[in-house]
């Protein structure tokens, strides 16, 4: 066939697909709908509906039997009756355990987030300013622990911080008495910082690496000291990264269960642990659901903040 041949046969099309497409189009189904339908239905059924179910069951009461909660809807002589129990929510506000657990979760998550930021920011900055050939290796070193089992990393920390663990043995070489670290709030902070550090570093790095170096030069040329350049140029420009990273640490840390139960002591109150105990030990499903609904309300504002910040991180 020469290039001048005017009658190039059109490429053969996949016959069965065309027939299927035409058939579907006839009943009003477009390709778009076919792409959307599976993930949409899956997420509706296994993400959104479950949240509605949690809300529904939080309005029931515990009972013995299967399932271990009173039915929401009962039909009696043809009339459907809806029974709502608010006692779980009333308990949440009146029982000191719950209030204390929420407050202490927020406190622990907030303090840990700030420490993570203080540890992560210099690391992200160093990676962003590192020579090109180093940068990918350093990034890989940040991501590697993220792929390593979360549970096993928390476990590795217990071996590190125990009474006769690595740190105390090291201190012992200098004649320093062992420090009690495990089963304290301190251990929980270390655990959160340790496991969530990559979540902080990656968005920070993404914003920092895009900053225009000429801005720093201009600032320095105009006589600003490095600390001022950092405070008034770098820091404000990296704000979206700071918010995104902080929320990525703060939100999951609030509901954290593994870290407080392996590293924290019996008095380390966190809401994820309370929910777990309410469900597994007390088998009070309605109460656990109410705890979950209240936890969702606590994280909804941070989630919205995160979405806005993520948009800003990606846009730049």
């Amino acid at each position: 066939m020469t290039t001048h041949d005017p009658t190039i046969p059109p490429p053969r099309r996949l016959k069965p697909w065309n027939a299927v497409e035409r058939g579907l189009a006839r009943v009003g189904i477009t390709g778009r709908m076919l792409v959307l339908i599976a993930p949409l239905i899956w997420l509706l059924v296994f993400f959104l509906v479950p949240l509605a179910v949690v809300f529904g069951i939080s309005l029931t009461s515990k009972q013995f039997g299967r399932p271990p909660y009173t039915p929401l809807l009962t039909s009696e002589e043809g009339t459907v009756q809806l029974t709502l129990h608010l006692n779980n929510y009333i308990r949440l506000f009146t029982d000191n355990l719950y209030v204390a657990a929420y407050l202490s979760s927020i406190r622990i998550a907030a303090i840990a987030t700030i420490i993570t930021l203080l540890v992560g920011y210099p690391m992200a900055y160093a990676i962003a300013r590192a020579p090109d050939r180093w940068r990918n290796i350093l990034l890989m070193l940040v991501v590697l622990p993220f792929f390593t089992s979360f549970l096993l990393r928390v476990y590795a920390l217990t071996g590190f911080m125990r009474g006769n663990g690595v740190i105390n043995q090291f201190l012992g070489l200098f004649g320093i008495e062992p420090i009690v670290m495990m089963q304290t709030d301190f251990a929980v902070y270390v655990g959160i910082v340790y496991t969530y550090l990559p979540f902080m570093i990656l968005p920070l790095y993404t914003t920092l690496v895009k900053l225009d170096v000429s801005l720093f030069e201009a600032s320095a040329d105009l006589g600003a000291r490095p600390i001022h350049t950092f405070l008034f140029v770098t820091l404000p420009l990296s704000l979206p990264g700071i918010i995104a990273g902080s929320m990525l640490v703060f939100i999951p840390a609030i509901g954290e269960f593994v870290i407080p139960s392996l590293l924290g002591g019996p008095e380390t109150l966190m809401i994820g642990r309370v929910l777990w105990d309410e469900f597994f030990s007390a088998t009070n499903w309605p109460r656990a659901s109410a705890v979950a609904v209240a936890m969702l309300l606590v994280v909804v504002v941070p989630i919205m903040l995160l979405q806005r910040a993520q948009g800003a991180v990606v846009e730049k």
């Binding site: 949240l51 179910v53 999951p252 609030i254 954290e256 994820g272 979950a292 936890m295 994280v299 995160l306």
Partner: peptide, 10 residues
């Protein structure tokens, strides 16, 4: 970002 305990329970 959903806390695991909520996903699991729901």
């Amino acid at each position: 970002v959903m806390p695991d305990v909520i996903t699991g329970l729901s």
